[in-house]
């Protein structure tokens, strides 16, 4: 039985790294030249991120 927290934390970070690698391998490559301004405040752009309070269809 695992007694230390080290392997658990390592496994969580490894899964995160795998998630990112699979995301990139799946073709989801970000484009920094189409990135939004640093701050949404003052950007003149509508907020468009996903949020848990969003209702279907947003």
């Amino acid at each position: 039985m695992i007694r230390s927290r080290r392997p658990v934390a390592g496994a969580v970070l490894a899964l995160l790294a795998l998630l990112l690698l699979l995301d990139i391998a799946g073709g989801a490559t970000p484009n920094p030249y189409r990135a939004p301004p640093l701050f949404a405040l003052g950007s003149g752009q509508a907020a468009s991120g996903g949020h848990c309070a969003a209702v279907p269809g947003r």
Binding site: L38, F39, A40, L41, S43, Q45, A46, A47, S48, G49, G50, H51, C52, A53, A54
Partner: peptide, 11 residues
């Protein structure tokens, strides 16, 4: 102010 939306986790 950076994201334009409040802090969230679940989405």
């Amino acid at each position: 102010v950076v994201a334009g939306q409040p802090w969230g986790v679940v989405y």
